Simulated scan of single mutants.
Amino acid sequence: MALSGKLTKKLVENLGAGRHGDGGGLYLVVDPSGARRWIVRVVVKGQRNLKGAPLRTDFGLGGADVVTLNQARDRALEYRRMAKSGLNPRFNAKREIPCFEEIAGQVHIDRLPTWKNAKHGAQWINTLRDYAFPKIGRMPIDSIGQPEVLMCLSPIWTEKHETARRLAQRIKIVLDVAKSKGFRSGENPVTAIHDAQVLPKVKVKVQHHKAMAWQAVPAFYTDLRTRNAMSAKALMFACLTGSRTGEVLNAQWSEFDFEARLWTCPADRMKGGVVHRVPVTDEMLAIIEPLRAMQSDYVFEGQKRHTPLSNMAMLMLLRRMQAESVTIHGFRSTFRDWASENTDFPREVIEMSLSHKVGSAVERAYARSDLLEKRRALMAQWSRFVSSSSIDQSYEGSA
């Protein structure tokens, strides 16, 4: 039968910052950050501190997210029995050490609210599931050292270097969290492997998104205009705004101020996590204004009512148009090239039109304007070029 005390499971989950006693020297410590851990205070019989007083010591029993209330009571009782018999729990206690997979799962749950979307959260744990759990998942967290980490990283270090790099970061986080909970000690083996340059250096060639030459855009846009599919409307809008796929497909009518000619994309949909204001040109308005009659929540509605187009809709359209050498994201590069080669707008205006950060953190702290009106003029000029009837070259086969 489990021991009883003052605390309950509900209290453990909801008590505020501070030290909360359960009785018998067991305490739940809640940090200001919300982290919860167990400690037990015991007096070791016959042992004294440097001042000659009875040796009273606090011992960590693990985080409350890993160690349950009943488990903490059982461990506290074990520590008190040892102390009463003159044994110092620091050297005599047997702790139940969780395995790597258990700690990783808890870290994943704890961090879910901090990820930009569910997809990123799934990618985080899936990398560990595919490459770490089969090798070290069931190992006690305190027994994982450099050889065990290398078992996970070495097979994919050169062939899947970016995946391996992310895997290393995630293993490091799990081991750091385990250390903070008292389940590990010493240097993180991932850090040691990195500092010692155990793994070979891998030169990764940067893969840029395939982009259409800016001279070919008017012909491509003219072709799009002949198509009635919603994906064509979305692709036209993406091309004109220089926005990313997710920003366009998830656009909602509530984000538009038609009187001010402004589309405000919220921070949670932006890669940089900052609100981005996009000036709406006449050509953009001509695309979306007729769509208001659908009375949907989303500007570019998919097959189901009040849901956006699929992420693949615009890409599949490009394939049907035989423009397979082009990506949606590549139109941002196309706009950047056109603006640099054909306009006199300052670099910061062009970069801000693409929602890029400009300058150092200090410079951004003082230059807080998003240069909206200057960007409005730039986007108007881009819209006129894209929708012009002059065609300099075919878009087919352009790269």
Rank of each mutant, 00 (worst) to 15 (best):
V40K: 05
V43E: 10
V43Q: 11
V43L: 06
K45Q: 13
G46T: 06
Q47E: 14
Q47D: 07
Q47L: 14
N49V: 11
N49S: 10
K51M: 08
G52L: 03
A53K: 15
P54I: 04
P54V: 01
L55Q: 03
L55I: 01
T57P: 02
D58F: 09
G60C: 10
G60V: 06
L61G: 09
L61V: 07
G63H: 08
G63C: 07
A64K: 02
A64T: 00
D65Y: 14
D65G: 09
V66R: 13
V67M: 12
V67N: 07
Q71G: 14
Q71I: 00
R73N: 02
R75D: 03
A76K: 06
A76N: 01
A76Q: 05
L77N: 15
L77S: 15
E78A: 15
E78Y: 09
R80H: 11
M82W: 07
A83T: 01
S85L: 14
S85Q: 15
G86S: 07
L87A: 12
L87Y: 14
N88I: 01
N88A: 04
P89H: 05
N92D: 11
N92V: 09
N92G: 12
K94I: 12
R95N: 08
E96Q: 14
I97T: 15
E101Q: 15
E101I: 10
E102P: 05
I103Q: 08
I103K: 12
A104D: 05
A104Y: 04
G105P: 00
Q106R: 13
V107C: 10
H108T: 07
I109M: 09
I109S: 11
I109K: 15
D110Y: 03
D110A: 15
R111M: 13
P113E: 09
T114S: 14
T114R: 09
W115E: 06
A118S: 13
K119H: 11
A122T: 11
Q123T: 07
W124A: 03
W124N: 04
I125Q: 06
N126L: 10
T127F: 04
L128N: 07
R129V: 13
R129I: 12
D130Q: 14
Y131V: 05
P134G: 10
K135G: 02
K135V: 12
I136K: 05
R138F: 06
P140H: 02
P140K: 02
P140C: 04
P140Q: 02
